[in-house]
Design a protein around this nucleic acid. Structure first.
Lengths: 384, 384
DNA sequence: CGGTTCCATGGAATCGATTCCACGACGAGG
DNA sequence: CCTCGTCGTGGAATCGATTCCATGGAACCG
């Protein structure tokens, strides 16, 4: 590895290393001649400052660590993308790590982030406690939680309030005459898994769905568990007439298993997924979903981190969720009688989602606090 | 930021910094007492070595840069995932960057990777030339190309030979009676975009599809261009009866536009996509695709980089592609007469993909060289 | 015209871990 | 008993950029 140091640049420019450094870092205390000489020398030598040496001395690395649960989950891929873009605008480079929905791997990654002295960390945390997260906080590394939280750990966060979306979904299913609905829950070691299950249970009890515990299957946010859930739910004596999955990957697994079992989504079984993914509207029938804005979440996470790095302690933000009704939810069918879905191809494509089909959940006022420390009014939920 | 240095550890252990360093880096020239003392002190102080200082002195950062074109593209998300996991096993941390299918952003990222003195770089390169890539090579930074190459730049690479898959796809469409097929090409500034278009043109000419240039629409590997392509293709006087899209995102865009135009995939128009994505088989009808193994590609990329870092210059590897026939391709329909696809739901799900439906492309011998420097026999194509 | 301020500059210290080199102690072999 | 080799150890140099501090010259003011 050929290596050009600032001393080489200084020598070629006929100045000292100190002056060269000042020129290259934009320090105003430099003469025009020195400036042009150094800049030319740096260009000629294709000089790239050693970021390690710089960080060592100046205790800034201009690097932010981002730890997501699973890049292959489209929700986190989108999130990683917006966060990375926002950080780039602020001059930070992103060190992206993948926890694989696995606490050991999360901790391994956090340890290297600490070693690298990143300027800040954005985490979608696993589990309920973690030695590495404690370490992070003990060292006062600026940290922000995104999508998920850890109870009792006081860190600014951006999360989604799942309640309005789930409540609207339950209401929608009740309106369609469903009584037994299967719920494919996320892991109870993760805050979103717990909150969504609670919201589900509360809404089901209040709005009159069956609260039979057999109708709840606890998965792990990965697609295989969605398949397992559907398999289990349809072996019950009284199988459900609809399914609600707590994330997109489990929804994918669930739909795959429905197909395998020869059941037609929208006709035989209604399906709702949490998380709106671009291609969910391409399925036939198009999937009814509970949506929340990934872009918003990513932007706000970066903004919060920026404030934490600047020394303030911003309030946590809770974003709303909303139900988007498409075609995968229809009137409850007794036995396997066909539902009321569109039959011919042309009708199907004519009834695709329009703005009017959205049952939005009170997008005006702030959503209630969900155990967060401080809660500011959420910005309006925009779709890219 | 509380900071514990190796001197603090040494002092607490009653030894010098040199000895502490030796203990912590596993140097055998240490006494058992020193070892236990230092280890205990390090544990008590929760010492994390400053990776910057270490890298500065030892000229190793144990970090590899990975530059993909777009994390939101499921193909690259999967690729990033396998590469990251493989690198982790070798003790490297991955610095993931996103070029956004944009050369300026790619170069910006490569510059910071050079500054950080990463031990190696894995790139899916944009464009046909790049000052930053030249810089990389001039500095002799170990580099490997993945999925794509840059002509004339001699760097080990793992790529897919698109030819057999595309040829099989064309043959399949010819067998179904199609004559006019729309091809949604990738950007011609990217090697895969060029190679796939060439393979397409050659196969079309040879096997008897129309070579009308109006049937080729050049997109940019992102979904909006797939939509635009379909929009344009179906305004032709003689529209195509089938569509082949050169990547998954453009296929998504194309399908969305077909739906919007009220055309039913599989019935009115046959569709084939390059890249097999998990949920493509969930579409109804399930999508016929040209597949290649992401896991293989990721693993091999890491292995190549490992060899380059060790000082050898491994041969490039070319992986095969194969056609997987599902339900989105049916006999050519004249006008809008219905095709021969399954009508009832039960039949549809009964005819889902089985191993027997795969028309594999000579998986035994090595595929011919496609302009690569050296080409080794590709390993067998396994699916997770 | 003398003294003060301002400014560009270079020398040297610094960040924290690694590593070269020298030193003392101890055991073995002559 | 002396010497040589081995081994654990500490001091100091090192990596490369930044930054504190001192310096000398120019400009400015009374």
């Amino acid at each position: 590895m050929n290596t050009v140091t600032i001393r080489d640049v200084a020598q070629r420019a006929g100045v000292s290393a100190a002056t060269a450094s000042r020129v290259l870092s934009g320090n105003p205390a430099t003469s025009p001649e020195a400036r042009s000489q150094v800049e030319q020398a740096a260009r000629e030598l294709d000089f790239r400052p050693n970021a390690q040496a710089r960080a060592l001395r100046s205790t800034r690395s201009d690097t932010v660590g981002l730890l997501v649960s699973d890049v292959r989950n489209p929700f986190f891929a989108d999130l990683a993308h917006t966060i990375e873009q926002s950080l780039l605008e602020l001059g930070y480079v992103t060190l992206l790590g993948n926890a694989n929905e696995n606490r050991a791997q999360q901790d391994r990654y956090l340890d290297t982030l600490i070693s690298r002295r990143v300027d800040g960390v954005i985490v979608a945390p696993q589990g309920t406690d973690s030695a590495s997260i404690d370490s992070l906080l003990a060292r006062e590394v600026p940290t922000v939680f995104v999508d998920r939280t850890i109870p009792g750990v006081d860190v600014p966060s951006v999360t989604t309030d799942s309640t309005p979306g789930i409540r609207a979904a339950v209401q929608h299913l009740v309106d369609l005459g469903h009584e037994r609905v299967g719920y494919v829950a996320g892991p109870q070691s993760v805050s979103t898994g717990r909150e969504r299950l609670e919201a589900w249970s509360a809404a089901a009890a209040e709005l009159g769905l069956s609260t039979d515990p057999e109708l709840v299957y606890v998965g792990d946010f990965q697609s295989a568990s969605g398949s397992a859930a559907v398999h289990a739910l349809f072996e019950l004596d009284e199988p459900p007439t609809a399914i609600l999955a707590a994330d997109s990957l489990m929804a994918v697994g669930a739909i795959a298993m429905l197909n395998r079992l020869g059941m037609r989504m929208g006709t035989d079984v209604s399906v709702i997924a949490f998380d709106d993914i671009e291609w969910f509207s391409l399925l036939d029938p198009a999937l009814t979903v509970i949506a929340h804005s990934v872009e918003e979440m990513g932007r706000i996470a970066v903004q919060l981190l920026h404030e934490v790095i600047d020394g303030s302690t911003p309030d946590s933000v809770v974003l709303p969720s909303e139900l988007i009704v498409r075609e995968s939810t229809t009137r409850a069918s007794r036995g396997s009688a066909g539902g009321a879905t569109g039959g011919s191809a042309t009708v199907t494509s004519a009834t695709r989602e329009t703005p009017a089909t959205r049952a939005s959940s009170s997008p005006t006022g702030p959503t209630g606090p969900t155990g967060q420390t401080g809660t500011t009014t959420p910005p309006p939920l925009g779709r890219n």
